[in-house]
Design a protein around this nucleic acid. Structure first.
Lengths: 129, 129, 129, 129
DNA sequence: GTGGTCTAGACCACT
DNA sequence: GTGGTCTAGACCACT
């Protein structure tokens, strides 16, 4: 579990934590029942206030990603098998739709979009085999 | 010029105005030297606070999209030929990159991404000819 | 809107606020689109910290009871007609079930329970007509 | 003596133990001078921390339900005849009052409450003869 | 050790 | 004016 906080971008710290932990769960780097660092420990690691970590954990609990065992610690929720995969799909589909809807609204042609898409896939080493 | 404001989604109203006017300019629906509605008029139309419209116009001015003529009104900036097109490209490329970077970070394969992409292109009637 | 906070009972202040506002909505004393007092104002009224009020409002927002309009204030959510009534039913049924399940577990007879029930209904002026 | 611990509901483990032992005494499943399992044994059975069992026993001692004999073990207190019955009555009356007070505060009518009550009595097989 | 609640007070974003 | 975020630090409950 390695989190990166960027205080310059205006994105709330607690949301950065939420996003990165959700992503780790979706990517499978965090598995069901894995323990998370304690509120205090993560606060020390990131040199932020424990309240801010607690806020992030509270949000993740509301979203059903993690749960707390009294006096013991915080753990990743057990999820139905395939949940991480579906979550991953949903995240990416949501972002892709934003991009394509925007392109459509701006009147771009399919081939213009394709060319941007191919370039980016190449840059991220995602060429088809 | 028809703007839609959604107060439910948590996106600042002034940003919704900024985005939609930028998009209109990038799409060519707003051309150089076209007049924009007055701050008061747009505030009345959208039933929002004039301060909010003023803030959006200020932001658009900072971004070089519009300019004010003393005592006359607000107009779309003259842009180098092709500027709208480049702007359009930049917007879509930015969004697409977000989606693809996320997919890469989540360890998705090229073919998984392709399948989502194709589905969405189809839904937005952007099939290749 | 008149809230009573009891700091002696060990019940978190923010939860007391949550409960009382939920109850007011279920009882119909708070109707859809009614404005709530501002975070600062309620904090002053109850002489508690604004953060504590904010915490209560956040929880109510998570539960879909209230929503915020940016820069304007906090309002009661529009609910399907009859929602308040159903909510009321659910609250009371939940509490009654706890009582009756406990009585059953303790091996009490129906007539013992009836006698307690009748006495209490009488005390709360809820006699049948 | 068979105790069930639910770590998911947020109810402190030590309170679950206290409640279940009080209930067993009120129901007559635990009689005066019956021995309780040792702290260590119960902790092993429930796979919880011995401190937690100790805390529950301490609480039960404070409430006059159990007592310790030096070096021998823990036992259920001798109670005045009828004490279990009165305790049972008090528990159920307390819970029923919560439910009925809430219903009254929410403006429910006697017949609404009756209908919920009858349904629940039926579900717990407590119909009048 | 773990997390939860609360205060005091600062600074920011939005309308 | 409105709510949102964050720090610093205290005290509490649970295991």
């Amino acid at each position: 579990m390695h989190l990166k906080i960027d205080t310059s971008g205006g994105v709330p710290i607690y949301l950065q934590i939420v996003d990165q932990i959700k992503r780790a769960a979706a990517a499978g780097r965090l598995k069901p029942e894995d323990p998370l660092p304690s509120v205090r420990q993560l606060a020390l690691d990131l040199t932020i206030n424990p309240n801010t970590v607690a806020r992030a954990y509270l949000e993740l609990e509301h979203q059903g990603i993690i749960y707390k065992r009294q006096g013991q610690g915080t753990y990743v929720c057990t999820q139905a098998p395939g949940a991480a995969r579906r979550e991953r799909h949903k995240m990416v589909a949501g972002l892709l739709e934003k991009a394509i809807a925007e392109a459509a609204a701006l009147g771009m042609t399919a081939s213009e979009i394709h060319s941007i898409y191919d370039q980016l896939m190449h840059r991220y080493h995602l060429e088809a085999v």
